[in-house]
């Protein structure tokens, strides 16, 4: 078996043994959506939102929760721990390059957010009657590109921190900031236009995700001055490339 496939296999097992990350990153988004839907007011169709329920409009935020958790909390902490413990250094003495382990990490983490999203979309549809993404292609693109931008931020954090403790602290700060724009604390519908528009430039780009999932919900959260869908995607892609480049430039193996 090649070094990369074997590394992916082992990293997958290690990921599954990390119950906190599996819980918060993969299962929590679904749980959060189900918990909020238990509040009757959020399940009432409202004439102000064109007959949509609050839960319909808010669903993409739960999705973002898992993406942010994995990309800016989990990955930087794992990589910082590997560097701190000399795992990367030890790997440098074998024929495998330490980038093998970073690549495997990113692949496993991406697979985990895909599982997290699929689970949430399925449960939202089956239990809460929230329709699956309408514009599927756009949704997949918005999800992948948005996640790449988040991962870029996470990799910058992984590149500059000295310890896993520091990675954790930066991760928490980033998490709170990103989730604010992701509408976890205040639904985007209730935000002033300025904050909503700023949110279009904040990874993973919630407006694009919402619009691709449900065009009706997207219209409600959009602002008059907002950018068109593909421009939002291009902005996220640009951020992913720039952040990835910065992270690669700053990365220290030991």
């Amino acid at each position: 078996m090649s070094a990369l496939t074997k590394t992916i296999e082992v990293e997958t097992r290690l990921f599954l043994r990390d119950s906190a990350t599996v819980g918060f990153g993969v299962l929590f988004p679904t749980g959060l959506l189900l918990a909020l839907s238990a509040i009757p007011a959020l399940r009432e169709p409202s004439p102000e939102t064109g007959g949509l329920r609050s839960i319909d409009v808010w669903a993409p935020t739960a999705l973002v929760f898992g993406m942010v958790m994995i990309a800016v909390q989990h990955i930087p902490v794992v990589i910082a721990t590997y560097r701190e413990r000399g795992v990367l250094r030890r790997l440098s003495t074998t024929p495998a390059h330490p980038r093998t382990i970073l690549l495997a990490q990113m692949i496993v983490a991406f697979a985990s957010v895909v599982v997290s999203a699929a689970l949430m979309i399925l449960v939202a549809w089956a239990v809460l009657g929230i329709s699956p993404p309408t514009r599927l292609l756009e949704f997949v693109v918005a999800f992948t590109v948005g996640y790449a931008a988040l991962l870029g931020l996470g990799m910058i954090s992984a590149a500059v921190v000295r310890t896993s403790g520091a990675a954790n602290q930066i991760g928490t700060l980033l998490f709170v900031a990103l989730m604010f724009f992701g509408g976890a604390f205040l639904p985007r519908v209730l935000m002033p236009d300025l904050l909503r528009e700023a949110g279009e430039y904040i990874p993973p780009g919630l407006q694009a995700l919402t619009a691709a999932w449900s065009p009706e919900a997207g219209e409600i959260t959009a602002t008059a001055g907002g950018q068109p869908f593909w421009l939002q995607i291009a902005i996220m892609a640009g951020m992913a490339v720039v952040a990835g480049g910065i992270a690669a430039k700053l990365f220290r193996w030991e």
Partner: peptide
């Protein structure tokens, strides 16, 4: 190579 201060993931 067996290096001083090199480790492996806990799990």
């Amino acid at each position: 190579v067996q290096l001083q201060e090199s480790g492996f993931p806990d799990a």
